[in-house]
């Protein structure tokens, strides 16, 4: 475990040097959130309306939180780096290091979002308070309680994206699969809470990563309920366990297919 802590610390220090890049990336975040704010403002023609049980403020804050998680964890480590390592053959060198390659990538990913996410969260909170107003019935204790769920959601996201990247062992370019996964999360997960979908579809959506990555953490921050909290945490722990098993399975199968051509 200590070697992963050292990796984490070095990535953290490295990313602190590039905090300015994260701040510049906030322009895109702001633009997207601004568009979605305008969209939901339009959808709530009467500000007192409720859509799927959400008020206008809750809905916009929900979108802002999911987008913050999305942007705060968007790094190329679990996607492009893994694909490039496999495609370029660098994996042959990395797999002989005294760590497990997938855990090394996950540690690096954690080091990166540890810097990005708090920066995005602070900016997002400022934008939210200025443009939408305070989130109704929000207490600091809600934030503290939701933090484990946010961390679990982000880790699940990293594990699943890494699993998709490992497909590169079989198909040269795994990017098209990443697009589909990203769209599943972005289009369905970040813009709409699960309750907005027809009731027949809701149980199905609870089985997808949308529930554990986006909906869970955002729902807890917007509308905290203890029974929901336990349900979401349980689903996340199960999801993470399955995801890690799948990740080790894919990696184990993949490295057996590896051909080293020398050089």
């Amino acid at each position: 475990m200590r070697k992963y802590a050292v990796i984490y610390r070095s990535i953290l220090m490295e990313n602190l040097q590039y905090a300015m890049n994260v701040i510049m990336g906030f322009i895109t975040y702001f633009m997207i959130v601004f568009i979605l704010m305008q969209l939901w403002n339009y959808m709530y023609s009467n500000p007192a309306d409720l859509i799927a049980g959400y008020s206008r403020q809750q809905m916009i804050w929900y979108v802002m939180i999911t987008e913050t998680i999305w942007f705060g964890t968007r790094t190329a480590t679990v996607t492009n780096q893994v694909t490039a390592d496999i495609k370029g053959g660098n994996i042959a060198y990395l797999m002989n290091k005294p760590y497990h390659y997938t855990l090394y990538i996950l540690t690096k990913y954690t080091g990166e979002w540890s810097i990005r996410l708090p920066i995005y969260a602070v900016f997002a909170a400022a934008v939210g308070v200025i443009m939408v107003g305070r989130l109704p019935d929000f207490h600091i204790i809600t934030l503290l309680a939701a933090i484990p769920s946010v961390i679990l959601g982000i880790t699940i996201q990293g594990v699943f994206k890494l699993c998709i990247s490992l497909i590169s062992f079989w198909i040269e370019d795994s990017n098209p699969f990443q697009w589909i996964y990203d769209k599943l999360i972005l289009v369905i997960g970040t813009i709409f809470p699960v309750e907005i979908f027809p009731e027949t579809l809701q149980p199905l959506l609870k089985l997808t990563p949308i529930y554990t990555v986006c909906y869970g953490p955002a729902k807890l921050l917007v509308d905290f309920q203890m029974d929901k909290y336990l349900e979401i945490l349980l689903a996340q722990v199960l999801y993470l366990g399955l995801g890690i098993l799948l990740m080790f399975f894919l990696y184990g199968k993949g490295v057996k297919k590896l051909y080293v051509n020398g050089g």
């Binding site: 198909i171 040269e172 370019d173 990017n175 098209p176 699969f177 697009w179 589909i180 769209k183 599943l184 289009v187 369905i188 813009i191 709409f192």
Partner: peptide
Amino acid sequence: TFLTNIIFMMLNNAAFLIQ
């Protein structure tokens, strides 16, 4: 890879239909 890129990009765009 070439065909996967094209087909999946079309599917990727089609996802917005749901939205």
